[in-house]
Structures are given as structure tokens and as C-alpha cells.
Amino acid sequence: MAKKYGMVIDLKRCIGCHTCAIACKLENNVPMGLFWNRVLTRGGPGLDIPEGSYPYLKREYLPVACQHCENAPCVKVCPVGATYKDPDGRVLINYDRCIGCRYCMTACPYNARVFNWQEPLRIPGHSYGSQGVPDRKRGVVEKCSFCQQLVDAGGEPFCVTCCPARARKFGDLNDPESEVSRLLRERPAERLLEDRGTRPQVYYLR
């Protein structure tokens, strides 16, 4: 059976430390001003701000990257086939083919895609990503690839490795023995904007 890579994020374990966002940036050589992975605050109007007034407060963190949807709107709209669903169930981008029309960005309900509006700027002034990360030039769209370079070599995405709260699990959703499948059997899970019918392969445990 073909693989269907997916991720399970335990919201009860997430502490909102942003390590995943930074780990992603480092591993994938993401330039300044862009993030493939970000941590949102579900609660008040700003980052880390809870909802309600003291002492009746509520706050939750929500890490968001590409949802690798099964019914991916971005894949449908790409006019040149630069964005595609690979055989292992990931949504990937061929950066050499992208024409920079940004249609996929308007099609994505999660704002997971970012665009190289300017010449990619890195501080310090060199590439810091790991080997095998595709090069992205100015004028193309980029996003999370479930760390294709690591996963294809038998590893796991770097955000999963780095999460200090062990909130992130990665695996094959088609394999009933995998940890992600087991977690989804045992715990109630939600997906983002389920009413949009995109069937994300990223699940959030509550």
C-alpha cells in the first residue's frame, strides 16, 4: 500500500515555545521574513495573549504549517503543475517550474504558502539549511515539505525532532501500526477548517 505521510500535533503538550518554527527555518534554509511553520495563539488578539479577563483566562497554541491536504486546492489550481501531490501523499513544489503567479496562495485556506517577494535574504549571509534542501530563488512560492530531504533518507521532519514538549508525531497514516495511526484511534482529533473539505493530513489532538 502506498504511503500517506501525516502529522499529529498534541495541543495538550504544545507549550507555544516556537522551537518548531525556528527549527524549520534552520533546516529548510527559509529566508528572513518568511516562515514555513508558525505558532498561532488561539485566544486573545495578540501573540501569547489569553482570552477573557483575569482570573478567567483561556489560551491555546496552534502550530500551523502546510496541511498536506488530501484534496489539496493548491494542487488543483497550479497552471504549470509546479505544485503536486507526490506518491507518498505529500504536497510538494517543483521550484524550477513555478512561474510565481501566486494562484496557489489564494487557493490555500490556511495561508501556509509564502512568496519570495524579494531576493532571499539570510542572516548570517550564507545558507544555513541542511544538504538536499531545494534552492528557491526570488519570485517563487515556497512552503513546508514535511522535510522531504530528511524523511526520504529515513528520518523525520526537523520540527518533530526538535519539539521539546514532544507534541509532534510524524508517520504513515496508511500504516495501522504507526504511532500517528494509533494516536488517532485513541484520542479525539480535529483538523483545521474541516468544513472546507480539504481533508488535511495534519491532525490536532485535544
Binding site: 497550479c78 503567479c101 501566486r102
Partner: peptide, 29 residues
């Protein structure tokens, strides 16, 4: 106007060499 909106105008011919019929943009072309 579509042409000037592209991030990579040098690759505009990709619309002709690797069109994907799923995309409404290709229907438009």
C-alpha cells in the same frame, strides 16, 4: 497585466510547455 503580475516572467512559456488542465488559469489561457 497577467504577465507583469508573474514573479518569474521568464518562465511564462511553462504555461505552454507544461500546462495542467485542472487549473482555471489554463482554461483562461
Amino acid at each position: 497585466f497577467i504577465f507583469v503580475d508573474l514573479g518569474r516572467p521568464d518562465r511564462i512559456l511553462n504555461l505552454l510547455t507544461s500546462p495542467k488542465l485542472n487549473s482555471p488559469l489554463i482554461w483562461d489561457v
